[in-house]
Design a binder for these strands. Structure first.
Length: 438
RNA sequence: UCCGGAGUAGCUCAAUCGGCAGAGCAGCGGACUGUUAAUCCGUUGGUUGCAGGUUCGAGUCCUGCCUCCGGAGCCA
């Protein structure tokens, strides 16, 4: 590298290029687009941190470099050195006046043109698609969301507590699981780390798990993946209300972090900012019973005790202009471990958080049953086997405390904040029905 | 798994009543000193998803299968 650039030029990145106006810098990246016009050529270079236009004039670089430039096609990896200029004619406001050009590797037959492509083709080329403006913007925002989630939890005294991926049995007993051969025994990929997080909360006070979760259902919708990432905070001594207020702070922190750190990326996505700027505590709340009533008034045929379907959830999500807590569900349609409401044991102290703009559920949370006998009774009522939950019941035998927690789906959060049409763009390599490669 | 839709050039699509399979983009060759999906000229490119059937003749009609897309259920 040093031998190839003829002067001392700073190694810069696109994201921080504004700090180098008037200086010579070296950039390493890839050709995103190239336009040749006789003795002048424009390339848009991407380096992972952003995109910038580089202007190369034949008179300013050597004949060899000019020849390399002519041969370098889309997505060739290149090294350029040049002068940073503020340039209103260029997208982004800055431009590089090229003084040196080298193609490190010339790409032949790049499969993704600049024209429209179908989803199928793009998904088959996902490993290349992620280089695009839009996809890379989404993935940078995903990074901010993950980082902000962890930051917030750490600042609030939560310990990261990694749950196992391979587990012995169903956590909740309802969903279909991926089976793996565990040296002759049947084992399953985890659908949730929550039960382990509860053990962690009684050991460390406040913990969170962060890892992949697996659901083997043959889901085929815009909001489901077979493999997705989930953060599950769980805190001892947290009761229902503590849990809800914590979630408000948590979600607001994440949204604010994206607004502060990814302004350029949100612009690439054309994401309206007003709905995100409204995301501040407190969030509206509506009980399940009130929701059923509201839905009935709006033409939905739902009865108390029914699980709400996707169209109902979308309606509620659009009805409010902030994330909304849907609370106090009938015990029968929720998980066995949820704490019954002391004022009405037919419902549980649980809340789902629905993201606005039609996105629907991103969080499911509840206070957990801490009473040993009540939990045993619920396990029986739900038709589960007590012997499968021995260690989980132990948590109620040895120093039990009220505790609460929630799980937030990372991809659903990304899809909402980025305003994506489909969850498959919210993760680098989505795992969907019959989609295993790349 | 169920309901609906679609498979034609590398990509996005067209092809009238069953009658010679086409265009744009990409690629390749050339021109151009301010392009923004550059433009202009020339040019390459086909087992019409697979198997069978009807017909003088099938991309088009019939039967079966495969793949994908959208939605439902399940849920984060």
């Amino acid at each position: 590298m040093e031998g190839e650039t003829k002067s001392m030029a700073v190694a810069a990145t696109v994201a921080t290029i504004g700090e180098y106006v008037g200086q010579e810098v070296t950039l390493k990246g890839w050709i995103h687009t190239k336009r040749e016009k006789g003795k002048i050529a424009f390339i848009v270079l991407r380096d992972g941190t952003g995109f910038i236009q580089v202007v190369l004039e034949q008179d300013r670089i050597s004949p060899n470099e000019w020849e390399e430039l002519r041969e370098a096609s889309l997505e060739s990896s290149v090294i350029v050195r040049g002068l940073v200029k503020a340039e209103p004619r260029a997208p982004g406001g800055y431009e590089i006046q090229g003084l040196f050009f080298k193609a490190f590797h010339v790409t032949k037959d790049w499969p993704l043109g600049r024209k429209d492509h179908g989803v199928d083709f793009l998904m088959d080329n996902r490993h290349l698609w992620i280089r695009s403006r839009r996809q890379s913007a989404i993935l940078r925002i995903r990074h901010t969301i993950e980082t902000a989630m962890i930051e917030f939890l750490n600042k609030n005294g939560f310990y990261r507590f990694d749950a196992p991926i391979i587990t012995a049995a169903a956590c909740e007993g309802t969903t279909t699981l991926f089976e793996v051969d565990y040296h002759g025994d049947k084992a399953y990929l985890s659908q949730s780390g929550q039960l382990y997080a509860e053990a962690g909360a009684l050991a460390l006070g406040k913990v969170y798990t962060f890892g992949p979760a697996f659901r083997a259902e043959k889901s085929k919708t815009r909001r489901h993946l077979l493999e997705f990432w989930m953060i599950e905070p769980e805190a001892a001594w947290f009761e229902y209300e503590d849990n809800i207020q914590f979630q408000e702070q948590f979600v607001s922190y994440i949204v604010n972090a994206v607004l502060e750190r990814n302004a350029d990326d949100l612009k690439i996505l054309d994401r309206p900012l007003e709905p995100l700027m409204r995301v501040k505590p407190p969030f509206p709340r509506i009980t399940y019973t009130e929701a059923v009533e509201l839905l009935g008034k709006n033409g939905f045929n739902v009865h108390w005790g029914d699980d709400l379907g996707a169209p109902e959830e979308t309606f509620l999500s659009n009805y409010f202009d902030k994330p909304v807590f849907l609370t106090h569900f009938p015990a029968k349609i929720k998980a066995f471990y949820m704490q019954p409401d002391p004022e009405n044991p037919e419902v549980v102290l649980a809340a789902d958080l629905l993201a606005p703009e039609g996105y629907g559920e991103i969080i499911g949370g509840s206070q957990r049953i801490h009473d040993y006998e009540l939990l045993r009774q619920k396990i029986r009522e739900f038709g589960l086997k007590e012997e499968d939950y021995q260690w989980y019941l132990d948590l109620r035998r040895y120093g039990s405390v009220p505790h609460s927690g929630f799980g937030i789906g990372l991809e659903r959060t990304v899809a909402w904040i980025c305003k994506l049409e489909h969850i498959r763009e919210a993760v680098p390599f989505p795992r969907m029905l019959h989609k295993l490669t790349p």
